[in-house]
Amino acid sequence: MVLQDLGRRINTAVTDLTRAPTLDEKAFDSMLRDIANALAEADVNIRLVANLRKTIKTTVKFSELPPSANKKRIIQKAVFDALVDIVNPHQTPYQPKKGKSNVIMFVGLQGAGKTTTCTKLARWYMARGFKTCLVCADTFRAGAFDQLKQNAIKAKIPYYGSLTQTDPVVVARDGVEKFKKERFEIIIVDTSGRHHQEDALFAEMVEIQNAVQPQQTIMVLDASIGQAAEAQSRAFKETADFGAIIITKTDGAAAGGGAISAVAATHTPIVFIGTGEHLLDLEKFNPQSFVSKLLGMGDMQGLVEH
């Protein structure tokens, strides 16, 4: 996955330090600078990077370490903990239940990968025995319904949408009502891309949400997003109170730090990652192993107590 290069660099920074002939405070500071640079280059929010640097510095308290201390271990653990803390949302995502209708609404910026991911997620639940369907509540983007329809047909998933109704609130309400009556268990609602600068688009999102009363709202984020990630995700959180994040396009070369900053800003768990353009390119996500991967060291898990 995309984060390996970042992991390698952080790892190198830590190892270089512990191999340095004199492991003094100056070397420690320069390691912190290297880590900060690696994170900045990975698109982690610049203020978050500054905070992270401060946190590691104050937890390690280098000048107070006794000479006998295992400095490498202490520093590694501080780095690992600080990173885990960023991606750890302190919140568990909603678990759909069989035998009832679980409405899942997708929101996000334009072109993030919502429509593609809707079908992937629907297929994921279908493969696990849920009665699953799709509702296209994007009446704005040209060809949006055709896109969802073609994907749904390929995946053999029932779908609902309209080529004539221009109000997404009406389409969303009608579709969800219909599928609830037919006792579908997973009803996924796709919506148009939007951004916080345009109030009318955010108001529309709230209206759709009120109309379909989703059990779960998911924000879809592109792995290549940069410094705008934090402000956008915060605004989506305040308005739509999404309870989960899906990061798409992790098969790309971007390090994904912007998306990680969105997790930190909204304390919301990443539940899946998109790994390609095809129907099956979706993976379940686990924050702990994610950070291990990020650090490029599988053995780091052992350093963290639970």
Binding site: R141, A142, G143, A144, F145, D146, Q147, L148, K149, Q150, N151, K154, E277
Partner: peptide
């Protein structure tokens, strides 16, 4: 000629 709906998307734009 790959992404679902890509042709229809352009058809709508051309119509508009």
């Amino acid at each position: 000629t790959f992404r679902s709906g890509a042709v229809e998307q352009l058809r709508v734009h051309v119509r508009n």
